[in-house]
Nucleic acid binder design. Structure first.
Length: 337
DNA sequence: CATTGTGTTGAC
DNA sequence: TCAACACAATGG
């Protein structure tokens, strides 16, 4: 039951060509995850083909990693699927290297919370930077880097810029880290803010409803032509929070109070987020064909107390809120909420 | 020529 | 969506 009947033709004198020695240090891969040192690629075992001398059908050893497929020459191909179509990520000598390439691709294609082969780093700053780097490039660009085995080189280059600007130990904002404004422009397009609201006591009370200011509702959530299933009872809208969790609310118009509201599911959100009156709830939408809606909330703090919530520009990127404070304001900006 | 990565199919 | 398989396209 063990085998997948892996028979490698050893007809040729080239003993086993399957186990590829890791290219000692082909590229300084960033701290290969510990978890990958198991089983390895020891699939060079030759299973006895009972009595059979017949030439075996060269069966390629399948990879234990997602998105990784064996190549006839013992190398490993990487592919990801999107919209019924395969996107080829490239070929790699090491199976682990291939698996990591898939992880990079899948994070770019499906977001930070996508299923990956390896456990992702827990370093917040590092992850934030990589997320930013990833999403500052198109999918094509990322795929190109991976194909050319230049992704980590490029990423390190980007990080060096960041840490250099940060040389004296002072923290800099993501804004500054970007350096290239055009990059920010493109990245910011990935997700833009629709509107914010300071929640009222009744929004977090027992009514299980959140009132969306009419102007914002009609502008961003027109009930008429929503793509979601819309009935007389309203529509179901999905929102993704900063942790990648999906929240589904019923969205409808209450004739009695002439207001647009989120109802079913709202209390659950309030409870999990420990939402309190005065907190700020923000709504975002990703650009592109997806138009995915996002929701995020934050404790009333310096931000909203100093000002009536309005004057601060916020761009939410990849789970990170980026605050652009007017130069005339505090003078220095700071991230780290 | 070696190798890539596309065409295709069938499972989940 | 996904990988297994076959093999045409690729390019050095």
């Amino acid at each position: 039951m063990d085998d997948q009947s892996i028979c490698i033709d050893e007809l040729s004198s080239t003993s086993d060509s399957i186990s590829i020695p890791l290219p000692s240090k082909s590229l300084q891969l960033p701290t290969l995850p510990q978890s990958l040192c198991r089983l390895g690629s020891s699939t060079s075992v030759i299973l006895d083909c009972e009595g059979g001398i017949k030439a075996e059908p060269r069966k390629l050893p399948s990879s234990k990693y997602k998105g990784v497929v064996p190549q006839p020459n013992g190398r490993w191909g990487v592919q990801i699927y999107e919209k019924h179509q395969r996107v080829w990520i490239g070929t790699f000598n090491a199976e682990d290297e291939a698996a990591m390439a898939y992880d990079v691709a899948v994070k770019r294609f499906r977001g930070q919370d996508a299923v990956t082969n390896f456990k992702q780093r827990s370093d917040t700053e590092d992850c934030g930077l990589e997320a930013f780097f990833l999403n500052s490039h198109s999918k094509d660009e990322i795929v190109d880097m991976l194909r050319k085995h230049a992704y980590y080189e490029e990423l390190e280059r980007y990080k060096r810029r960041y840490f250099h600007a940060n040389g004296d130990g002072k923290r800099v904002s993501m804004m500054e880290a970007l350096g290239d404004p055009s990059r920010l422009g493109r990245a910011a397009m990935a997700c833009h803010i629709l509107f914010q609201k300071e929640v009222t006591p009744s929004d977090v009370g027992k009514l299980n409803r959140f009132v969306i200011p009419k102007q914002h509702a009609e502008k961003h959530f027109p009930l008429r032509n929503l793509t979601s299933p819309t009935t007389s009872k309203g529509a179901l809208l999905n929102f993704i929070d900063s942790g990648g969790k999906v929240w589904r609310f019923r969205y409808s118009y209450w004739n009695s109070s002439h207001s647009y509201v989120l109802t079913r599911g709202w209390t659950r959100f309030v409870k999990e987020k420990s939402l309190r009156a005065g907190d700020i709830v923000s709504f975002y939408q990703s650009a592109g064909p997806e138009k995915q809606l996002h929701i995020n909330c934050m404790r009333r703090s310096r931000l909203s107390r100093a000002r009536p919530v309005h004057p601060v520009q916020i761009v939410r990127l990849f789970g990170v809120d980026i605050f652009k404070v007017s130069a005339t304001g505090g003078g220095r900006d700071s991230d780290d909420g």
